[in-house]
Simulated assay, not measured.
Amino acid sequence: MSAIGTDVGGKKMKLHKKVLGVGMATVALSIPLMGTAFAGQDALSSTHGASAHFINVGDKFEVCDLAFDGNTAKVEYEYVRKDGTLQKGSHSATVDSGNCSMFDHDFGEGRKVKFRAVVQIPFWPDVTGPWKTGIA
């Protein structure tokens, strides 16, 4: 193994070319892999009485009814497909009073999904949580 001499503070330091070569090769191999995987992102929207959770693994919505009030908890969502068309929809929790319902989707990987929690109250305007964005 050959060495390179370096003078540091009056002392001769040796850096081995072989060690430097291995370290540089490791860095060079890892750089192309960094940008290839999409990192999905979960998100949560909630309001008094309901929550909507986007779970990126499996592209799921979990809608929870958080109040014992007889109102319906739901999620409203919007998603721009790869072809540029807008997909809109909603899912209502199938049970009331502190329970959650799960809804599966198959959004394109790396695509943004905009959604919000909603409480549907008969004869009154809906109560809505803030729009949030998850990444599939």
Rank of each mutant, 00 (worst) to 15 (best):
C100H: 03
V80P: 01
I121A: 08
L33Q: 09
F61W: 01
A39H: 07
S2D: 10
S90M: 09
M34R: 04
A43W: 08
S45L: 04
K74D: 01
K14R: 11
Q41D: 14
K12I: 11
F61R: 00
G23Q: 11
V119I: 11
Q41C: 06
R116S: 04
M102A: 12
T47K: 02
G98F: 04
T85K: 12
K88I: 10
T133E: 08
T26C: 15
V113H: 00
G110H: 05
T6Q: 13
S30Y: 09
M13V: 15
A67Y: 06
G58T: 05
G98T: 02
K82E: 09
C100L: 06
K132I: 03
P32W: 03
T94Y: 10
W131S: 05
V63T: 01
S51D: 12
V22Y: 14
V22K: 12
I31P: 00
G49N: 01
F103L: 04
I121R: 08
G35H: 06
P125D: 13
T85M: 11
K18G: 14
F103N: 02
E109K: 08
F68H: 10
F123M: 12
R116C: 02
F123T: 07
M102T: 12
T6D: 14
G58F: 08
A50C: 09
A73M: 04
G35R: 02
S51M: 07
V19A: 15
K88L: 07
G129K: 01
G49L: 02
K88N: 09
I55H: 03
A37I: 15
G9F: 05
R81A: 06
T26A: 15
R116Q: 03
K14G: 08
V57P: 00
V19N: 09
T72G: 04
Y77H: 04
F54K: 00
T128W: 07
D104C: 07
N99F: 11
D83F: 04
L33Y: 04
V95G: 12
G108H: 09
K132T: 02
